[in-house]
Structures are given as C-alpha cells and as structure tokens.
C-alpha cells in the first residue's frame, strides 16, 4: 500500500537534490566589510536600545558601504551561539546590546581576537579593588557607555524650570553608578536654574517594581514635589504614573518614553535620552577608520551620544526662558565651562 507514497518521497528527494545542486554557491568573499548586531531578548523592534542600536548600525553601514545584518536572540542561552554565527561567517565587527550579554560577549571576544566587538551600555570593571583592568585581556572589546550625569543635568534644568512648588524629585532604581550619575546630575541641574530648589530622591533596589515606584512617587507628591524624574526601568515608570494621575509633569529616562510608554505621554515633559544609535555609529566609525580602541567609548553631549528628547505635547508648556537655560547649560557643559558636579 505504501509503494506510491515512497515513489513520491523519492521524487521529492530527487527534486530537492537537483534544486540543491543548482543553488548558487554562497557569494564569493567580497571586499565589503560586514557588521552584525546581536539583540538581546527584546528583539530589534523593541522601540528601545535594540532598535536604536540597529538604526545606528544601518546608518554606519550605509555611510561606509558595509553589509549589516542582525540576529534576534530568543533566549539568554542563544547569545553565545548568535555571536558565533556572525564570527564563523567572518564578520568584521559585532555589536551586542545590553548588560545581559556581558558574559557572552567577553567569552566570544577572547575566542575571536580578530573581530571588533562593541557592547552597548555595559562596562567591564575589576571585580574588586586591585584586580587587573579587564580590557587588558579584552583587547578587541569597546564598551559604549553614556555620561548620564550630563543629560541628567539638563533634565534637572527642565524640572527646576517647571516646578512651582520649589521641590523636584526622582524615583530611582538600584543604586548603581549609571543611576547615581543621572540623579546627581538631575539635582545639580535643578539647582542651576533655581538655586533654592529642594530635591528628593529614593533608590529602590529593583528595576522591575512599578508598584513600589508608584508608592514612592505618591509619598513624594505628599511632600510637595511637583516634577518627577523616573530613573529605573519599570520601577521609575511607577513614579511617572503617580505624577501623571495628578496631572503633574514627569521626565522619562534612557529612551524617548513618549513613544515607549504612551500611558504617561500626556505628563512627559521630556526624557533624558541615551542615543544608542549615535553611540553605535561612533563605534563603527572608529572601526571604519581604524582608530578603534579597546576600553570605554563615552557617549556624551559633545558627540551627541546623549541628549534630551523632544518636548512633544509640552513644547508650548515649557517656558521659553527654561528652554534658553537648557540651551545655555548644554553649551556650557560641552565647552567644559560647567560641570555636573558628579564625582565618581
């Protein structure tokens, strides 16, 4: 009874083999350089770091005439495999996104010393004082880090300018260096525009606790704060929500949260943005002109790697003199006449 079925199997196999044999051989290794992006589990359309990194990669590839491809990671155990995929395909540069991929990137960078790696928002630091600098070993890894205190400072200028009560506050995630930089910059920025301003801040040891963030936000409201800066993933988002419900202005973080967190967009005056696309572009530019260095590439106001997001709905509500102050502070920070007051 199964003769006919086997005949069909055989036929299909023959067809498959013939097609396989006729298939064009993989394109001969062109002189074109190749850059690959490995996203974390968020995927390339996450409206956040991954997407922004892909934008930067594409921009650089277009400008320098490279080939650009991305691989989305389905799960954390895929990171190494996906980096390996680009490496075995002889890619020249590989960009990885986010601190979740720190271990995988380091392991693969050691395995493939000839490939340039850039990792977004993750720095390799000595585990304890006295340990050697990890970049001595990771000769081909560039960490794309952001100078959060500068953009935090500008957010503080906006917050101080908008505050009527004279108290501004921040709902923060874990007390780790990037968060602290945001907060210190923010507080000093507020004082820059309004020297008598009172600042409140609470660090919540989590990035994924919007309920706690909202609770802290409400307690800050009761202490007279009328502008909030949410610095800490979902925890910070809880703080934004608390202020949105009272119709008070809020400032987002990392990306333009007007797009990524539309529930609070009415309240969002601006966001303290890390321009991942610019940082990736800057990294790939150094790869292109051969000036690439292992270690840290800092994205700051000067090179456009950070900046305030557009005011969107608040464009008319932010007074012109506040905007002028933001401009003034930006110029002063870039020229070095002004410092954010953050000391590591």
């Amino acid at each position: 009874m199964s003769k006919r079925i086997w005949l069909i199997v055989a036929l299909l196999v023959v067809v498959a083999l013939v097609i396989g044999a006729c298939a064009p051989a993989p394109a001969p290794a062109a002189a074109k350089k190749k850059v690959g992006l490995v996203t974390d589990v968020g995927g390339v359309n996450d409206k956040s770091f991954n997407q922004s990194a892909w934008d930067g990669t594409q921009k650089a590839a277009k400008e320098f005439g490279w080939d650009a491809k991305f691989i989305e990671s389905k799960q954390p155990t895929d990171y190494e495999k996906n980096i390996d995929q680009f490496a075995t395909e002889k890619y020249d540069a590989i960009v990885t996104v986010g601190f979740l991929m720190g271990d995988a990137t380091a392991a693969k960078a050691k395995q493939y010393p000839g490939i340039k790696f850039g990792i977004v928002d993750y720095g390799y630091f000595p585990a304890k004082a006295g340990d050697p600098d990890p970049y001595v070993e990771l000769k081909n890894v560039t960490s794309l880090l952001f100078q959060e205190d500068e953009v935090g400072f500008l957010a503080g200028v906006v917050a101080g300018g908008l505050s009527k009560s004279g108290t501004v506050c921040s709902v923060s995630g874990m007390e780790i260096p990037p968060v602290v930089r945001f907060v210190v910059g923010y507080q000093n920025g507020a004082k820059y525009i309004k020297p008598a301003v009172k600042t409140l801040n609470t660090y919540i040891p989590s990035f994924t606790d919007p309920a706690k963030g909202k609770e802290v936000g409400q307690s800050m409201l009761s202490q007279g704060c009328d502008v909030v800066f949410g610095v800490g993933g979902n925890t910070g988002n809880g703080g934004l929500l608390a202020f949105k419900e009272k119709g008070l202005p809020a400032i987002g973080v990392d990306v333009d949260q007007y797009n990524t967190y539309p529930e609070v967009k009415d309240a969002l005056a601006t966001s303290a943005q890390k321009n991942v696309d610019t940082a990736v572009y800057l990294f790939l530019k150094t790869v292109s002109d051969g000036s690439v260095k292992a270690g840290i590439l800092t994205a700051n106001l000067k090179n456009g790697g950070i900046g305030l997001a557009p005011y969107h709905d608040w464009d008319a509500k932010v007074p012109a003199d506040v905007k002028a102050k933001v401009k003034e502070a930006t110029d002063a920070l870039i020229s070095g006449k002004l410092t954010t007051g953050y000391k590591p």
């Binding site: 589990v41 389905k74 799960q75 954390p76 155990t77």
Partner: peptide, 19 residues
C-alpha cells in the same frame, strides 16, 4: 539541562524565555 549545560553563566537569568 539548559541551566547546567548551556547557559553562559551556568545559572538562571531573568527572562529565560525558552518556548
């Protein structure tokens, strides 16, 4: 097997979305 044999950190990270 995924935690003990494959995971880079030989640990369980958050967002271990496997499917």
């Amino acid at each position: 097997t995924e935690v003990l044999g494959v995971s880079t950190c030989r640990c369980l990270p958050l967002f271990f979305s496997a499917g």
